[in-house]
Structures are given as structure tokens and as C-alpha cells.
């Protein structure tokens, strides 16, 4: 039991790291997302005087 837990910890930790990194980078650089991100980062500079109804 213990050996399994340790083996899992030692090997899969790295796998998770790589998989997550690849996933996040793909998402961030997915061409279709460009417009959304540009809008998002500019959105906070818009007028924000009251909630939208």
C-alpha cells in the first residue's frame, strides 16, 4: 500500500505538472481566444459607475 502511494507520488507528480502546463499554454494561446482576452483586459478600463441591468 505504502509503496504504491509513494510510487504514485514520485512519478505522477511530474506528469501532472507537464500535462497542466501544456493544457494551460494551449488555452492561453488558442487563436480563437485572442479576441476574448483583449476585450477582457480592456474591460476594466471602461466606465464602471454602476451595475449593468
Amino acid at each position: 500500500m505504502h509503496d504504491m502511494v509513494v510510487a504514485f507520488s514520485k512519478s505522477w507528480g511530474l506528469f501532472y505538472l507537464v500535462a497542466l502546463a501544456v493544457g494551460v499554454v494551449i488555452y492561453a494561446y488558442w487563436p480563437a481566444n485572442r479576441a476574448r482576452f483583449t476585450r477582457a483586459k480592456n474591460s476594466i478600463l471602461d466606465k464602471d459607475d454602476r451595475p449593468w441591468s
Binding site: 505504502h2 504514485f8 505522477w12 497542466l20
Partner: peptide, 18 residues
């Protein structure tokens, strides 16, 4: 999920290990 992985992997084995 993403945040828990590190803690589980490092801490859980400490409780099973002899």
C-alpha cells in the same frame, strides 16, 4: 483539484509510511 494535488502527494505518504 489543481491546488490539492501537491499537498495530497506530499502529505498522504507520510501517514502510510513506516
Amino acid at each position: 483539484v489543481v491546488a490539492s494535488i501537491g499537498g495530497i502527494v506530499e502529505i498522504a505518504p507520510l501517514f502510510t509510511i513506516k
